[in-house]
Nucleic acid binder design. Structure first.
Lengths: 209, 209
DNA sequence: CACCTTAATGCGATTTTGTAGCTTCTAGGC
DNA sequence: GCCTAGAAGCTACAAAATCGCATTAAGGTG
């Protein structure tokens, strides 16, 4: 089977895409996101507006693409010697980047022009990957580790919720608090989570009491 | 100082607003949200397009207004005799409504055309109000109660995060699990939350490797 | 209650944006 | 080196958004 013919990621298409993305980044900086128009981007990128309309549909989907690209983490989280330290530092940086005005704008854009949720899913996947890296390291060190899902629910979700629904009320101290509670929970709730249909699974450690 | 002359909420303005909102609701049902246009809404509402452009700016902001109106809870959460039961039932209904296709659409619309976050803040306030009603009842019963903030972080935020970033992965059982863990946390972490500046945070990220 | 003031709407002209049909170009396969 | 088909260019057209000015009617004032 030929793995490529479905789409053409190389050659001219790739150049156009890169050119358009670059034009968006430049113009957002120059005239601001609100003043942006498709014809404007097309001119700067050296393509015709039709091309952009055909490939992206509208300005929102284009901005969504660009936003997701900028939300991709550039490096793995730092290794500070313990899970707790890694998570603290990562969460703090996460808040710094995501809660900043440009960060909020990118998140909104990513969600905005995304009919099928692909881009939003990608954002979530980025965070999960970063967390997995830290958890894998902790496992290698022999530390007990919570599940990725728990950290997403307890750390990532509250941060994103505040960014999207409650401007303000968000700082590094809050991020550390979330990490503290999540790690603490992992130590005490280990067997308490299932809940579900009253399944009395006493397999792992019973939190007793 | 005259407290009203800033804006004119009564009379014709009010009629126009209601008429336009009604037109949006009708047309969304008839032709679908994607086919909606400002001129179309204007015609149905019996106003000129200019009026809509002037008052709402664009279709997104109008849809955002309508969406927030529909996301407003219509009744107080049911009183089932205990905080746990109230929260369970409420969270389940919350997931049902918010995770349904129309619910997701309203949430997206509400966030979408909302430059200053006013509408998003309103959505968050609705949830907080509902929770406060249940907590007040529990206090009256003499039950120990968690803080509103804890429930928002532990129950509302994870649900909304999944709706927005991870289509699928969301059902009533998950909602109950969140409530269980939140209530459980409230019983065990009572004094464990502060945390704050206790951590000996070494200077930020170590470049490592 | 008649009279102002002015926010808000209506209306039409103009500009800008979005779409459609067709032609031209070129990446990828033979 | 040729073919094929996906992607971009180009033009004309349709639809939308914007702007200036006239008109209406809230809400306050005497």
């Amino acid at each position: 089977m030929s793995p490529k013919p479905m789409v053409r990621p190389g050659g001219r298409s790739a150049r156009v895409q890169e050119s358009v993305h670059a034009a968006v980044r430049e113009l957002v900086g120059e005239v601001g996101r609100d003043a942006l128009t498709v014809p404007m981007v097309a001119t700067r990128a050296g393509v015709t507006p039709s091309t952009i309309y055909r490939r992206w549909g509208d300005l929102q989907e284009l901005l969504s693409d660009v936003a997701v690209e900028r939300l991709r983490p550039e490096t793995d989280p730092a290794d500070l010697g313990s899970l707790r330290a890694d998570l603290d530092a990562w969460a703090e940086q996460f808040v710094d980047e995501m809660a900043s005005p440009p960060g909020r704008a990118y998140i909104r854009d990513a969600l905005l022009g995304d009919p099928d949720g692909t881009n939003a899913g990608q954002c979530s996947a980025y965070a999960a990957e970063q967390i997995d890296v830290m958890l894998a390291r902790a496992v290698r060190r022999g530390e007990p580790v919570p599940e990725t899902e728990l950290l997403i629910d307890r750390v990532v979700a509250p941060i994103m919720y505040r960014i999207l629904f409650r401007p303000g009320r968000l700082d590094a101290a809050y991020a550390r608090e979330l990490v503290t509670n999540a790690v603490y929970a992992q130590q005490t709730e280990a067997g308490a989570r299932p809940t579900q249909a009253a399944a009395p699974r006493r397999s792992k450690k019973q939190p007793d009491n």
